[in-house]
Amino acid sequence: MATADEPEPILRGQDVVREYRTGGQTVRALDGVDFAIRPAEFVAVVGPSGSGKSTLLNLLGLLDVPTSGRVELGGEDVSTFDQGRRTRTRKRDVGFIFQSYYLIPTLTALENVEVPRLLDRTPVETRERATELLERVGLGDRLDHAPDELSGGQKQRVATARALINDPNLLLADEPTGNLDRDTGDSILDLFDDLRTEQDVAVVTVTHDEYVADAADRVVRLIDGEVRG
């Protein structure tokens, strides 16, 4: 997949297999997948449900390790990382946007954005950064609103701001436009473009939405745990 003049990939996978045991039988969710994610790339992963999209996203986000095969980060095999190192790497390099946002209902929009850096004991810097991010996603007037006072699109943008607070190299988004109208979806995609051009952030999204797939640099089609086409 890679050619010589392209930049080094952030994340590379070779013959990645992920198996689960459920109810006494083994399910192979990913069956020998190769991938490489380069800076500023926008990759859309599409495929029917159960095709292994979520498993791939978990592997990319270092939430999971492959059963066999290799996932490399900066040339190192992530399966050699211990739990703590994986957690630290995740915090430093990866931003997650979950399909159902998972905002913490007891915290305001601003505080939700701060959550990943809350334990760093740098409240002033964190607050500045979070405010800046919320302003950037157009929620500068919603800082102190609780999640249940926000619309779906607003929650999505809070979740996006949260994913960006640690300046990740890689942004993983699960159905980023799933519950949104076209205009709101567009604004999210615009934000992704800005991040790529300004900060070389790579964006990987799992989606059913052909509109998102069309906007991507590259589309990976997963069927039954294998890459097709």
Partner: peptide
């Protein structure tokens, strides 16, 4: 459960 999972995903360690 979900919220705690998110915390772990965004870089909270076991200890945290």
């Amino acid at each position: 459960e979900g919220e705690l999972g998110v915390l772990r995903a965004v870089g909270y360690g076991t200890w945290a």
